[in-house]
């Protein structure tokens, strides 16, 4: 059965209390973020249905939001998600080369996950780090001023953490 941990349920209640009575739907985006972290890095339909029940809204209200925003994953992703920016300012600073290098290094295409389930590569649009290009998002933080060497060390760091 899908259910948030006690601490998460408490957090959900706290978030709902930020809005006026009856406006608990406002908690949808934050609660989906929490659900994605807690239930395996993506939003499966039963998870979205659970969130709908929790907020007392229709499942379709959750699906339409989950499919609108790019940060919600609607299919499984690897343990480490590399989201590499490819918009103008990053492109000017060589993001194409970084994306090609990651593809070659991990032997996957954009949108694919390595066979061991460790890494997923995604290209994304501007993340607001244009002065520190090229860059990518990995989990909660940004990795900036990317070079091939830096990509190598990030991959090693992830592998070491996973072992």
């Amino acid at each position: 059965m899908i259910q948030f941990k006690e601490t998460s349920l408490k957090k959900v209640a706290e978030i709902i209390a930020r809005y006026p009575e009856g406006r608990q739907k406002s908690a949808l985006l934050p609660v989906l973020h929490m659900a994605q972290v807690e239930f395996g890095g993506w939003l499966d339909v039963p998870v979205m249905d659970y969130v709908a029940t929790l907020l007392n809204i229709e499942p379709i209200e959750v699906y339409e939001v989950a499919s609108f925003y790019s940060m919600y994953n609607l299919k499984p992703v690897g343990k480490y998600l590399f989201e590499v920016c490819q918009t103008g300012p990053c492109m000017l600073n060589g993001s194409d080369n970084i994306i090609d290098y990651i593809k070659q290094k991990l032997n996957i295409g954009v949108g694919e996950t390595t066979a061991d389930g460790m890494f997923t590569l995604k290209t994304v649009e501007c993340l607001g780090a244009c002065g520190y290009a090229p860059m990518m998002q990995m989990g909660k933080t940004y990795r900036e001023h990317l070079t091939k060497e830096k990509v190598d060390s990030i991959i090693e760091e992830c592998r070491a953490k996973a072992n």
């Binding site: 934050p30 925003y69 649009e125």
Partner: peptide, 9 residues
Amino acid sequence: YVQRGAGAY
């Protein structure tokens, strides 16, 4: 309160 979006320009 701070509310996070989820990726939408």
